[in-house]
């Protein structure tokens, strides 16, 4: 199965989870997602997701000047983002449990 298809459905959740740990700028989020094992995550997908979540009011953002290289726009969760994260996490957990149950039956049969 193409994991990039699965990723599309859970990218919001993954980005929120990464930002829940600590605030990050765009490329940092990409790197941390890849470090966590989501090798297929696309740079544009993460950037677009961050902008969409920010527009939806789930994220705060602030610019940090860096000594070398461009300014970095950091994103962090606000209350809306934290609520969204906990709701999405619940949904995912229950969905994953359902899938696990299904696959267990397949394995048993």
């Amino acid at each position: 199965m193409d994991s990039s298809q699965l990723l599309k459905g859970v990218l919001d959740l993954a980005v929120l989870a990464v930002l829940d740990g600590r605030d990050s700028y765009g490329y940092d989020v990409v790197r941390r997602l890849r470090e966590a094992g989501l090798d297929d995550v696309g740079d544009a997908s993460v950037y677009g997701t961050l902008r969409r979540l920010f527009k939806a009011g789930a994220l705060t953002s602030y610019v940090v000047a860096s000594e070398e290289g461009p300014h970095r726009k950091y994103y962090g969760l606000n209350d809306v983002g934290r609520t969204l994260l906990s709701d999405s996490a619940r949904t995912w957990t229950s969905f994953a449990a359902t899938m696990d149950g299904l696959l267990k039956e397949v394995g048993a049969g």
Partner: peptide
């Protein structure tokens, strides 16, 4: 709104 930080972001990627 979408492309506001694209240049900075791509510069970050390019610097890597």
């Amino acid at each position: 709104e979408l492309l506001e930080d694209l240049d900075d972001h791509l510069a970050e990627v390019a610097a890597e």
